[in-house]
Simulated assay, not measured.
Amino acid sequence: MPYFNTTDGTEIYYTDQGEGQPVLLSHGWPLSSDAWQVEIKLLADNGYRAIAHDRRGHGRSAKTYTGNDMDTYANDLAELIEHLDLTNLVVIGHSTGGGEVVRYSAQHGVGRVAKVITVGAVPPQMVKTDSNPGGFPIEVFDDIRAGVLKDASQFYKDLTEAFFGANRAGSTVSQGAKDEFWRQGMLVNLAAAYDCIKAFSETDFTEDLKALDVPIFLAHGDDDQIVPIDASAMKSAELVKHGTLKVYPGAPHGIYGGFQAELDQDILAFIAK
């Protein structure tokens, strides 16, 4: 299994499959690169080189106590991409990973990144502030922190209900998909999981979105209960220069089922443009 050491000595796990134009995928909280298994195979089968990493503190990467913030995540990504010398790169990020690839692309990716794709992504900002009155109150994220500290295992199991829309009538999400979310979540160490809540909720990506000068595809379900579309993709679409917004009716936050099948074909089409 390939690993890469950042300049601060943090060991980052990544998978690298297929050949062709590189496509790098960044996962959501509290998951790992395993969340992209289907897309990695799909991209490799269609003539692309698919790369996905486990963010520091997550999955098989080092269980970090420090550096669990968005600037460090983006810097880790920059160092990995430089190590692999990736150019004409497409970056894809889901949820927290969407914020990570937006910040990376804006602050490190000029000359390397050709296109950006976000899915259910956290930008421009999740928490409610004076400049972001439509965000969630900070108490929402305080409750997430409390839940992780009290009983992370049960918290992740409970979170799958809203994540996959399993609490909606007609949901077809499998128990296996929910169990897999829990399995990946249990690989993140507590300090990293806790600190990442601040990273995904309080980071302001407004200037990063404005700075992007490459095409960006903003994919979002209109029944996303984790990152509601009105406060995220709708606003992001107004800030980027070359954005394409697609709303998936009834789709939840989690990438699964019919949403996944449609999204994956849209990803291939957008890359091929």
Rank of each mutant, 00 (worst) to 15 (best):
P2V: 11
Y3K: 12
Y3G: 07
T6S: 13
G9A: 10
T10D: 06
E11Y: 03
E11Q: 12
I12G: 10
I12H: 10
Y13T: 09
Y14C: 05
Y14I: 05
T15M: 09
Q17A: 08
Q17W: 02
L25D: 09
H27N: 02
G28S: 04
L31W: 07
D34E: 14
A35V: 05
I40E: 03
I40Y: 03
K41T: 12
K41H: 09
A44W: 05
G47N: 07
I51Q: 03
H53G: 03
D54L: 12
R56F: 09
G59P: 05
T64K: 15
N68G: 03
D69M: 13
M70L: 08
D71C: 10
T72A: 01
N75E: 13
D76M: 04
L77V: 12
E79T: 08
E79H: 04
E79D: 04
L84S: 04
T87C: 01
N88W: 15
L89I: 08
L89T: 05
I92R: 12
G93Y: 08
G93Q: 09
G97T: 08
Y104G: 01
A106T: 06
Q107E: 14
Q107P: 11
A114S: 14
K115N: 02
V116F: 01
V116Q: 04
T118Q: 07
V119L: 08
V122K: 07
V122A: 12
V122M: 12
Q125S: 13
Q125L: 07
M126L: 14
K128G: 04
S131K: 15
S131F: 15
N132T: 06
N132W: 06
P133N: 13
P133D: 14
G135A: 01
F136Y: 11
F136M: 15
I138F: 11
I138L: 12
I144V: 11
I144K: 05
R145Q: 12
A146M: 14
G147E: 15
S153R: 14
Q154K: 15
Q154H: 14
Y156W: 14
K157G: 01
D158T: 15
T160M: 12
F164S: 00
G165A: 13
N167R: 13
T172N: 10
T172L: 07
V173N: 01
G176R: 15
K178M: 15
D179I: 01
D179M: 01
R183W: 14
M186V: 05
M186A: 13
L187K: 13
V188G: 08
N189M: 01
A191T: 14
A191I: 02
A191V: 07
A192P: 02
A192I: 01
D195C: 05
D195L: 02
F200E: 03
S201K: 09
D204T: 09
F205M: 08
F205S: 12
T206N: 02
E207T: 06
L209K: 09
K210C: 07
L218K: 03
A219Y: 00
D222R: 07
D223Q: 15
I226V: 11
D230G: 12
A231P: 03
S232W: 00
M234C: 09
M234W: 00
E238C: 03
V240A: 06
H242S: 10
H242N: 11
L245V: 05
L245S: 02
P249C: 11
G250P: 00
G254Y: 12
G254V: 07
G254L: 05
I255P: 00
I255L: 09
Y256S: 00
F259M: 03
Q260M: 10
A261W: 04
E262F: 10
Q265V: 03
L268N: 10
A269Y: 00
F270K: 04
I271W: 14
A272C: 07
